[in-house]
Design a protein around this nucleic acid. Structure first.
Lengths: 198, 198
DNA sequence: TCTTGCGGAATGAACGTTCCGTCAAAGGTA
DNA sequence: TACCTTTGACGGAACGTTCATTCCGCAAGA
């Protein structure tokens, strides 16, 4: 019977996420991966054409989950500031609670295909900015509340601190509690908000 | 003559920096490296015990140069804000003008030994904070000007945006001009400064 | 002649991928 | 129901490649 066992597929992806995030793409041999998924090496190649395809597929899945988590519970009727803080907190909490996903994404974006992917995304966003919840905020009627800066700079000021702090947290250098996450989000907001006075 | 040719050593380190930053540690074979340095493969092992040692040595050199560049021209008699902006601008400009060094460091810190190194550094800094120019600012008499936050959070708010934006710049997604670097530094300062009013 | 730095061929390990024998289950036949 | 045939998923041995590292003969200086 030509069939694909969905459970097996999931098991392979799960093992891949764990091993890639823990040891890196280059130090997670397919043999070990198959082992951890309780599957023969050959079987992995029944589900995924090769290692690169496996990585790409995993990226799609992880990114999808992240996007969902980010917009969870954000209310478009709230103030720009409230929405922004909510988005940043969602982002931070998700990545903090899913260290495997975070480490995998970090690695992916720092690898050859990651850079390519980022370039693609950027070009697509030029066309459909409005898909991205942050883009919406940066543009929609918030012109007076948010500094008038190039978008990549706003991105950097908003996300840079989040990623930096998460890296330290993952390395065990900081304990990220709720209070600190809120202070983080406030800091990001201060960096991009238009200041009323001096 | 039992001698070490300093020129050859430099040539190997230079080739290593270029190849590692361009292709990554794993895709820069020692053979190619030796080739680019106009040196036999065997000779490389005369100067460096193995590939890991080469990477570590290169890191020490690059880090040294970076530290020097960061504090260049910073005047301790200036205001905290001025000093901070100066440090951030130095950091950004150096990394922007030395893409090989930037990519190498990024890769280093995202690799297994990088994390170890970071942990080491953090422990050392607990003892000799005052070595780090940013630490000085965060503590010395600036208590009123800078938010009272955990040090790792201040770090994240100050450096996160710089690294994020530089990554985009390296990938060719943004053109980083002087004006943008100043806006970046201002944003970082806004993120950590104590606000006088609302 | 003796020493020693040097280069590159040789070595061995690690890995991604392929290939093939095995086996369980589906389906056909009586 | 009982038996035989066919199918294709499966695992892992085997292959070929790539690479870090070693080893050895050579050549240049003392």
């Amino acid at each position: 019977m030509p069939s694909i066992d969905e459970n097996k597929r999931k098991a392979i992806l799960k093992a891949a996420l764990e091993l890639f995030s823990e040891y890196g793409f280059h130090n997670a041999p397919m043999a070990r991966l198959a082992d951890q998924a309780n599957v023969g090496v050959g079987s992995v190649y029944r589900y995924f054409k090769d290692k690169n395809t496996l990585i790409e597929t995993l990226y799609e899945e992880v990114d999808e989950a992240l996007q969902m988590a980010i917009i969870d519970g954000v209310d478009p009727t709230h103030s720009t500031r409230k929405q922004f803080l909510h988005l940043i907190i969602n982002l931070t909490c998700f990545l903090k609670d899913h260290p495997h996903e975070f480490k995998f994404l970090e690695q992916y974006y720092h690898s050859p295909f990651g850079i390519e992917k980022k370039r693609e995304k950027l070009l697509l966003e030029k066309i459909s900015d409005r898909q991205n919840p942050f883009m919406k905020l940066f543009f929609e009627g918030s012109r007076k509340e948010i500094k008038s800066l190039p978008v990549p700079l706003l991105h950097a000021l908003a996300f840079g601190p989040v990623l930096f702090l998460l890296r330290d947290a993952m390395a065990g250098l900081v304990k990220l509690d709720e209070a600190m996450i809120i202070q983080l989000a406030d800091g990001c907001w201060d960096a991009i908000r238009n200041r009323v006075d001096s």
